[in-house]
C-alpha cells in the first residue's frame, strides 16, 4: 500500500474528512470543487495540519496524531505541483528548477528538459512564460527535487486545449516512464478517465 491516508481537518467553517488507500501508479482524487481535495493534498504535503488521523506514504509515517508525529514539509520528500505554478519571480527558470535539487550547481537533467520541452527556457524570467510553459517548469522543479511521490493539483485547469494536450502527454510519460507514484486531483471526468490507474471519489 503506497498511500495510506486517513485524515480529518477543519478549514474555515468546513469539516473535511478523507480516507483512502492506494497502490502506486497514478491515483486520481475525483470530486466537485470544494470537496476538500486540495486540502487533502496540503495535509499530505505538510502545509495543513490535520486534527486527527494518519498519513503514511511509501511505508514512511508523515503524520500520526496518536503518536505525535508531524514531519515538516521539507522532510516529506514530496513533489507538489500546485494549481498555480508558484514559480519564484525573482529567479530565472534555471534557478527555479534547481531550487530543490540535491546538487544546485549541476545543470538540470537534459532528458527531463527534453520530456518537458523546457530546455530553451532556462535563462528566461518566470513572468515571460506562457501558462503552459510555467506549468511545465513547475512540474520540472518538483521532479528535480528528488521526490518520493508527486502531488498534482488540477494540473490541467486554466489551460487552453492545445496546452492541456501537451501537459496530459507529459503526465502520461511520467506515469509510464518514470514510475513515480502520483496522486492527482481533478474535477474533470475526462481527465480522470484518461490518466488514472484508479479513481477515488471524494
Amino acid at each position: 500500500m503506497f498511500f495510506d491516508v486517513d485524515v480529518e481537518a477543519r478549514v474555515g467553517a468546513h469539516d473535511i474528512a478523507c480516507r483512502f488507500q492506494a497502490e502506486d501508479g497514478l491515483t486520481v482524487l475525483f470530486g466537485p470543487s470544494g470537496a476538500g481535495k486540495t486540502s487533502t493534498l496540503n495535509m499530505i504535503a505538510g502545509l495543513l495540519k490535520p486534527r486527527r488521523g494518519h498519513i503514511r506514504v511509501g511505508g514512511r509515517v508523515l503524520f500520526d496524531h496518536g503518536e505525535g508525529i508531524n514531519l515538516p514539509p521539507e522532510a516529506r520528500r514530496v513533489g507538489y505541483v500546485f494549481q498555480e505554478p508558484r514559480l519564484f519571480p525573482h529567479k530565472r527558470v534555471r534557478a527555479n528548477l534547481l531550487y530543490g535539487a540535491p546538487d544546485r550547481d549541476a545543470d538540470p537533467d537534459p532528458q527531463l528538459m527534453e520530456v518537458l520541452g523546457i530546455g530553451p527556457l532556462l535563462d528566461r524570467w518566470p513572468r515571460t512564460l506562457s501558462g503552459g510553459e510555467a506549468r511545465r517548469v513547475a512540474i520540472g522543479r518538483a521532479l528535480l527535487s528528488d521526490p518520493a511521490f508527486l502531488l498534482l493539483d488540477e494540473p490541467l485547469s486554466s489551460l487552453d486545449r492545445a496546452r492541456r494536450e501537451e501537459i496530459m502527454a507529459v503526465i502520461e510519460r511520467l506515469r509510464d516512464a518514470i514510475g513515480l507514484p502520483i496522486l492527482m486531483v481533478t474535477h474533470d471526468a475526462a481527465e480522470a478517465e484518461r490518466l488514472a490507474t484508479r479513481t477515488i471519489e471524494v
Binding site: G46, P72, E74, V78, R86, F88
Partner: peptide, 21 residues
C-alpha cells in the same frame, strides 16, 4: 506571497533557507 514560501518548503527548504532565498 506566502504560497511561494509553502512551495519552497515542499521543495525541501527549511524555514531559514526560505527566509533567505
Amino acid at each position: 506571497d506566502r504560497q511561494l514560501e509553502s512551495a519552497a518548503r515542499t521543495l525541501g527548504a527549511g524555514r531559514w533557507r526560505v527566509f533567505r532565498t
